[in-house]
Every structure is written in C-alpha cells, then in structure tokens.
Design a protein around this nucleic acid. Structure first.
Length: 556
RNA sequence: GACUGGGUAGCUCAGCUGGAUAGAGCACUCGCCUUCUAAGCGAAUGGUCAAGGGUUCGAAUCCCUUCUCGGUCACCA
C-alpha cells in the first residue's frame, strides 16, 4: 500500500514517470526508485543528474517531511526511507479499510477445476487441480469478482465403457458394484486395453452406444457415477474444496447438437481421415496445431466436443467475462484447440485462460507411482500424512478430528502452493509431513501463539505515532505490503505470491514475539500499540491463509 | 525432428516484465526455555545461478549456440 501511495503522490508532482518499489537493500532504505537509469537515454542526461532532479522535486512536495525521513541518491539509485508516523498511518489504513485496502474488480468468471474422472480413484495428481483451483477461486472472489466454480466431472468417456465391460464380464450384479470394486476394475481394464486391441475396441463400442443413449449402459453409468461421486465429494469435503456446479461431460451432451449445427452453418466442420474436425491452425503458429476432432470416425464424441458444448452452455447461462481452466499443463494443446474452435464458432467472446500446472513426480523424478505401478490414492496420502503428524508429539493423539483435518490440509496445501505452479515437483511424503520451517503448521502455530497474547486483552482502536524497535518496524512495514502481494497473486493467478507474503509476515511476527514481550508491560501506550499491531497481523494471517484453503485449529 | 518447460547451496525449491551484497526450508554446527506455546528465535557454514558467447551503465533474469532432463505433437482425458 505504501508503494501505491508514494507512486500516486510522486507522479502527481514530478514531470517524469517513476515507479517506487520495495527496497532490495533494506540495510540502506525502505523503498527505491531505479528510473534514473532508464530515463538517462530518453532524456540524454546522466542518471546521477536525473536522480538528483527527482530527489529535489520530491523534497519540495508540501509536507513531505511527515512522510519521508531520508531520501538520497546512491550510485544513481534514489533511496527512500519513510517516517514512523507515515508507516503507522498506513498500518491504520490497512487495519480499517475493507479487505485491508485491496481494490475490487467485478468480472464474472467461470472456473473449471478438479476435473476428476468418475470410476477412477482420486490420486495425488488430482490434489493439485483441487487445491490450486480452490485457492485461485478464493483469490478471485476476495478481489470482488463473481466466480462460478464447476468441478466438471469426466463421467461419459472411455473409462466408463471400460468399467461397464468389466462389470458385464465379471458378471457383477448391481449391488456388487462397490467403490472397492471400481477401484480395482478401472486400473485392471486400463492395463488390459493397452495390451488387447480387440477388448479396447469393444470398450469403445460400449462407450459410443452409451453416448447414443443405450438404456442399460446408461443405467450402469448412473450406478457407477453415484458411487464414485459420493466418494469424490467426501474427499473434497475433507480438503475443504467446494464447487457451485457439478456439471459434467454427460450434461454437456445436451448441447453438442447445437454446437454441431453452428459449426456446420459456418462451414467450419469438415471430414478428415474419417473424423469430423475443426481446423484451428493460424498463420502465426510457430508449430503445427492439428485440427480439433469434434467427432471420432466411429461416431463417438471426445473431450474437446464436450468442452465446446460446455462452453456454449456456460455462455448461455452466465455470459462470463472469463473462463478459467486449472489442469495439468499437458493438456495445453487440447485447450488451445478448444478455445480457438469456440471463438471461431462464435459461441462465446469470453476471455479464455488455461492455467496449466506441472506434473507430480516421485523422488526419482518420474511421474509418481506406487510399487504396484499406479498413482497412490489421495485418501491414502491424507491418512498417511495424518498418521505421521500424530506420531510427532504425544499430545497430538488427543487432538480433535476437526483440528487434525485442518492441520493435514495445511501441510499438504502449503507444501504444494509454495511452488511455482507451472513447474513439476517432486512429491516426497517426508516433505509433505514436515511441520517445522516453511510449512502450513508453522503458520498455524504462529497465529495461535499470537492469539494467545490477545486473548485476555481488549483490542485497542487507536495507534500512536511511535515505533519501538527495528523488529517492530519490520513487522509494520510488512503489514503495509499486503495489497501489492495480493494483487500480484491475483493478476498472475499464482497463489504462491500469497504464500510468500504469509510466510514473510509470519517470520516477522515470530521475530516480534521472541523479542518484544507484552505481558507485564507498564507503558500503556506501548502495550496498546503492540496489541493493535499484533491484532491486525493475526487478522491478515488468518484471512490470507483462508485464501490458500488453510484454517486455524483450536490448539496445537 | 518441431514446439514447449526445466537445469540456482548436499537435498527440495523461491527469485526470472534486467538493478546495488543471489534467498528460503530441510540437513549439519553453535547459542537461547524460572517471563505471552522452543512445531519458536538468533548466529555460523554452504553458490563459477549447466557451459560458452552476445546485448546493456548493470544479466540468474533478455538474445544466440551447445550439453542435459521432462512434456506435447489427430481420433485418451
């Protein structure tokens, strides 16, 4: 918030455009302006001259002494330090403004994340889409946008055909179709279809007939979906991941015909190698973008078809400004095709965004697999994390399920979201169960111990002009930097910027905790000031943690 | 092969729309619990930012080349 205010103030007064940024040399100053170097060429003057000029102008601003305590030119950089009273003024602004001063936006956004496949058990790969998507959704909402989140189930594809094949060949009665059976049948069939072309063809045939409305296949599909969705909802509930819509591939089938007509009317659909496709290549492409396959040569529809139909449906129902997808980055080609085809067809003019995240790898750097060869289930991972956490301390055995769940979530989410989401990462259960250092539990612990101080005190509403020591000052400065961090996360759709901010703030707060004791303070002003600062710190930490899906347990 | 994303401390990663001395966590070493929760705090150690060249006042960051590891490239999602 300080850089924003200084930028506004300076650019009103200066004849050149400058940008104030956080200092990267805190030993020298609080803020800096690097513009002199850039302007040197433009203005044909030396950077030193320009920097001095900027400083002179700033020094002449009315009442500037109340804001800036020191401003000087060092090696062409303009170094600025602000007064304690100005820091306190901004801390008060942050504390009393709605959403700590984060400015609102008002777009309508449809988000598509989670994307679990019915009949396939959730594995660690699904963790990423769920928690990254959930966090981005909360960030978008916090910014004031109208967000509609759709889990968008994969419930009508080949995997269902494969499982139906298994059910029929295993001679399973309806009541014998259980979650355990599905968890076993899908990976088995998936393996068989890779080896056996004939069986694969049969499964494809079943899939196609189901999509064409075969009553028996659709009845079995219902059974499979009901069982699987119940399980999926249970896990998402535990992860505190929620959706406004539970639409799916299957629900998109209602709109395929409409989209097909539009494509035909516009002459965009044509036959190629037996399939019906939409050409999406553009002249500026640096690589070949193959056409989007709308309908397979055997008549069945694909992921791209249902995605287009879904886009058509969303446009009709919500007229969103943006449609945002959170999936594995390996799907980026698919989305390029779908987005282009949709814009060409004119079924929406919404801005499409695909945020592709990296793959979860094992400690060997290869896609994560258990010894049995399949990806480990999400449920197992969460349980194992919980067990390891409980084993860390004797008292943990007595924690409530609710608190344990909050901690397991914080461990898993904080570990994931602190990474740059576009990169792959190595999944290591030891890292995911770590509770000290840059981890979720560290954040929760920080909040709890600060809260303990506030518990029996009344929270002051006034803040004096004083700052009492360097640690105190650092904490207050960090508080004033929330808006910048938030906006960076918002604009880039990257929760990791918020994670970084929370971690830095918690670090400063723990530093403060260690250095400055409030209990037994005689100086009432100092005590009030510190309570004020700690209170706003706790509030910010709590709210920002909430944005990455982390709640504070009652005790730890 | 084309396109694309990586290669930064022993390990896992930040930093990448160029800025002053490259940062965290884990691990290792040393201090700090009669004072609000030690799941904490402080200090120390650890780097040719894959290699080479270029642009620039300034490069981990931008450009080129090479090496190396992933991923994608028409009927899976």
């Amino acid at each position: 918030m300080i850089t924003k205010e200084l930028n506004k103030l300076f650019n009103n007064e200066l004849d050149v455009n400058v940008t104030v940024i956080q200092s990267n040399r805190p030993d020298l100053c609080d803020f800096q302006i690097d513009e002199a170097f850039r302007l040197a060429k433009e203005l044909h003057k030396s950077p030193f001259e320009i920097a001095n000029n900027i400083v002179d102008k700033i020094k002449n601003i009315d009442n500037i002494d109340s804001i800036i305590s020191k401003i000087e030119v060092v090696n062409g950089f303009v170094n600025i330090s602000v007064t304690d009273s100005f820091i306190n003024k901004v801390v008060k602004e942050v504390a009393t403004t709605s959403k700590y001063g984060v400015e609102e936006d008002n777009k309508k956004v449809v988000m598509d994340y989670g994307g679990p496949n019915v009949a396939k058990p959730l594995h660690v790969g699904h963790l990423r889409s769920a928690i990254i998507g959930e966090s981005i959704k909360r960030i978008l909402k916090y910014k004031g946008n109208d967000v509609i989140a759709d889990v968008h189930l994969g419930d009508y594809g080949l995997q269902i055909g494969e499982v139906i094949y298994a059910i029929q060949h295993d001679g399973k009665a309806d009541d014998e179709i259980t979650l355990e059976y599905l968890n076993e049948a899908y990976p088995r069939m998936s393996g068989i279809c890779k080896e056996n072309e004939d069986i694969k063809k049969e499964c494809e045939e079943i899939t196609k007939k189901m999509q064409e409305g075969d009553p028996e296949y659709n009845r079995l599909c219902d059974i499979i979906c009901n069982i699987s969705i119940k399980d999926i909802k249970g896990i998402y509930d535990d992860l505190d991941v929620s959706f406004d819509l539970w639409e799916s591939e299957r629900s998109a089938y209602n709109y395929i015909k409409d989209v097909e007509d539009i494509l035909k009317n516009k002459g965009l659909l044509y036959e190629s190698q037996g399939a019906m496709v939409v050409d999406v290549a553009e002249e500026t492409d640096s690589k070949e973008i193959p056409p989007m396959i709308f309908q397979k040569s055997n008549g069945a529809y694909l992921y791209g078809t249902t995605d287009m139909a879904t886009i058509y449906d969303r446009e009709n129902k919500y007229q969103p400004d943006n449609m945002l997808y959170i999936t594995d980055d390996r799907q980026s080609m698919h989305f390029t095709q779908v987005f282009r085809a949709s814009h060409k067809a004119g079924i929406t003019d919404a801005v499409f965004e695909h945020k592709g995240f990296g793959t979860v790898n094992g400690t060997d750097g290869k896609p994560f697999k258990t010894r049995a060869g399949n990806a480990p289930s999400l449920r197992d991972l969460l349980n194992e994390t919980k067990d390891i956490f409980i084993s860390k301390k004797e008292e943990n055995k007595d924690m409530s399920e609710e608190d344990l769940n909050k901690i397991v979530n914080s461990i898993v989410k904080f570990a994931d979201l602190q990474n740059n989401l576009t990169n792959d990462y190595i999944f290591d259960i030891n890292k995911f169960s770590n509770t000290s250092g840059k981890t979720g539990p560290y954040m929760q612990y920080t909040v709890l111990r600060l809260k303990k101080i506030l518990d029996n005190e009344s929270i002051p509403t006034e803040l004096s002009d004083n700052i009492y020591n360097e640690v105190d000052r650092n904490l207050r400065l960090k508080i004033t930097n929330l808006c910048e961090a938030f906006d960076k996360a918002y604009e880039n759709r990257m929760p990791s910027y918020i994670v970084d901010y929370i971690y830095d703030l918690a670090n400063e707060a723990n530093n403060f905790y260690q250095t400055n004791h409030i209990a037994g303070l005689d100086d009432e002003t100092k005590k009030n000031d510190w309570l004020y600062v700690l209170n706003i710190t706790v509030n910010i930490l709590t709210d920002m943690l909430k944005l990455i899906g982390i709640d504070i347990p009652s005790y730890m």
